[in-house]
Design a protein around this nucleic acid. Structure first.
Length: 334
DNA sequence: AACAGTCTCAACCGCCTCGAG
DNA sequence: TCTCGAGGCGGTTGAGACTGT
């Protein structure tokens, strides 16, 4: 017994939405609010199925959606979260204010995945491609960590990171076929390790990010317009402002051309901490690094969950800040 | 200019989850 | 407890844009 498909109906239109249809949908939702998607097409005078209306609204028309090119910080947060959670686009989207899961998914599939491959990193496992046999997957361990990090980065098999290594773009053999292009404004990516350091530097602003994007809504589903508070945050807020970037660049010697990929060390530390039951960050690899309990995944409206996420973010950033010397010093750097 | 190959991303599809009755 | 429908989610598709020859 199979369920009747949602979008079965005579004369229902498919394909690209027209401006006129958009106007009708926006107008209806502005007046009546979101919800009751099944009834919206008829009430709004649209020959679309409710699901199509919902997708069009949530992925494209919703006023708070941020469109346009992803910043390098957004890119790297995606990479990091993908490493932690896999293709959980909706979970990743919750950590990227004003981005939709669909947009993130598309961006991953068309840009980031290729770039990781180009760098010799398996986009599924986030391990070096062919790590068991690839001699380039090992580098001088003494160069990897300036603190008391172990010189070996091997992990137990169960961790899924048994052969994690530090690699640089210069280390990576050309991808088979070698024609992965970076089109349309794609910048050379920086490494996840730099991401972690950058995010750590910014992590103290995460509360601001979250609070700035905690919007109140009118009954019609649109953000409350209040010049004094959250609406300013909505329209003006840029979680990756140039001033922040400037600070980060100043402290991390940001260099797009010489990248490491030492996220693995971070994960290794998590693994060790978990085994040792160290209190300050008790999460396992495979759990959300920001939201340690899957059952507590963030609801965008839950204060408790948000606090929980902030707490995890702080733990995470503290870890990174405590290991500020993690940045891999590439032997190829000048 | 024309064509073919490639890329991008909006939109669709089908399954899953959750809550109401 | 079960059924059903709404909404959510991740994978996939295909039209149009872009690029190379």
């Amino acid at each position: 017994m199979s369920r009747k498909p949602c979008c079965v109906g005579e004369g229902l239109k498919k394909g690209a939405w027209t401006t006129e249809e958009d106007k009708k949908l926006i107008s209806y939702i502005y007046e009546h609010g979101e919800g009751g998607w099944r009834d919206i097409p008829q009430k709004a005078g649209l020959k679309r199925c409710g699901k199509s209306c919902r997708l069009r609204w949530t992925n494209y028309l919703k006023p708070e959606i941020k469109r346009g090119e992803f910043s390098s910080e957004e890119e790297q947060i995606i990479i990091m979260l993908h490493a932690a959670r896999g293709n959980k686009w909706s979970v990743i989207a919750r950590h990227l204010p004003r981005r939709t899961d669909n947009e993130i998914k598309n961006y991953w599939n068309t840009h980031l995945k290729k770039r990781l491959i180009e760098q010799g990193i398996d986009p599924v496992t986030h391990k070096p491609l062919g790590s068991n046999t690839n001699p380039t997957a090992t580098t001088q361990p003494e160069k990897l960590h300036s603190l008391d990090a172990p010189t070996s980065t091997s992990l137990p098999l169960s961790s899924g990171f048994n052969t994690v290594s530090k690699i640089t773009r210069n280390d990576v053999a050309p991808v088979h076929g070698g024609s992965l292009s970076c089109k349309k404004g794609i910048k050379k990516s920086s490494s996840t390790s730099r991401l972690l350091n950058k995010v750590a530097a910014k992590a103290t602003s995460i509360k601001d990010i979250l609070s700035a994007t905690t919007l109140s809504y009118e009954p019609n589903g649109f953000p409350t317009r209040n010049e004094e508070d959250s609406s300013n945050a909505l329209t003006d807020f840029d979680p990756f402002s140039q001033s922040l970037l400037h600070e980060v660049h100043a402290t991390s010697d940001f260099d797009m051309d010489h990248d490491g990929y030492d996220f693995s060390y971070f994960l290794e530390k998590l693994e060790r901490d978990d085994h040792n039951k160290e209190p300050y960050m008790n999460v396992e690899y495979g759990h959300d690094l920001l939201i340690s309990d899957v059952s507590q995944e963030v609801s965008s409206t839950s204060v408790d969950d948000q606090d929980n996420m902030i707490g995890n973010f702080e733990d995470w950033s503290n870890y990174l800040l405590d290991h500020g010397g993690l940045i891999y010093e590439s032997p190829y750097q000048n």
